[in-house]
């Protein structure tokens, strides 16, 4: 059942659902409820997208602890901005991924962070990070090579390859045109291949000059 709700001076379409039906609500319906301060809807949204947000942040950042910080910031931003969010034809997940990517890029730009290109192999030797990110020597090399990519290239590759976003969604999350995203992906994959070759990882391709 749809009703118009006034939230903070804004009118939005809100779906009234029984507690058990909250799980069936679309992302956009949940966001409208969150805009009105509905914590149950917020918890459903966190449960629904938490793992993907963590996964995206983990591949963008150096370790799981930073990824968790970014994910928390992202969901707090959802809580704060839900009342202002207007779909305008875009999916909520596109906006959410954009928030996560931008938070990751912001953190990478902080002067206290060591430049990732200089990091070489993953510096994080915590068991959880190693167990999840690099189970083998090759995986460690691939992980390091991925981290060595320029930020935007890594973001494009992570969104497209690991998160399985369509080219339109990934372009939306990065605020790029589809053709610009595609160009970024080509460069990312080429750079990753070269990085892996420099680390002695077999990529099945001829050595590039």
């Amino acid at each position: 059942m749809l009703r118009a709700a006034r939230t903070g001076g804004r009118t939005s379409q809100v779906v009234e659902r029984p507690t058990g039906r909250m799980q069936d609500a679309s992302d956009e319906e949940l966001v409208a409820l969150i805009g009105g301060g509905d914590r149950r809807a917020y918890h459903v949204l966190v449960e629904r997208h938490g793992r993907r947000v963590l996964g995206l942040a983990r591949r963008m950042m150096r370790n799981l602890a930073e990824a968790e910080d970014v994910s928390q910031d992202a969901f707090l931003r959802v809580w704060q901005k839900a009342g202002e969010w207007q779909p305008r034809g875009a999916r909520f997940t596109t906006w959410l991924y954009r928030v996560v990517v931008n938070l990751c890029l912001d953190r990478k730009r902080r002067p206290t962070m060591a430049p990732i290109e200089a990091a070489g192999d993953p510096a994080d030797s915590r068991p959880d990070a190693e167990q999840t990110l690099a189970k083998s020597q090759q995986d460690r090399h691939v992980s390091a090579a991925l981290q060595a990519l320029p930020e935007r290239q890594r973001a494009a590759l992570v969104l497209s390859y690991f998160e399985g976003l369509s080219n339109v969604e990934a372009a939306g999350a990065l605020e790029l045109s589809v053709s610009a995203l595609e160009s970024l992906l080509v460069r990312a994959r080429r750079a990753l291949r070269q990085e892996l070759q420099s680390r002695g990882v077999e990529t099945g391709a001829k050595e590039e000059p």
């Binding site: 938490g50 999840t132 995986d139 691939v142 690991f162 994959r189």
Partner: peptide
């Protein structure tokens, strides 16, 4: 290249998800 990246497709640890849920 796809094959090399496949090794990094690891699920998010349950405890990380639990920490996120508790934190927010």
């Amino acid at each position: 290249l796809d094959g090399a990246l496949t090794g990094l497709v690891a699920p998010v640890p349950d405890d990380a998800m639990a920490r996120l849920t508790a934190a927010v």
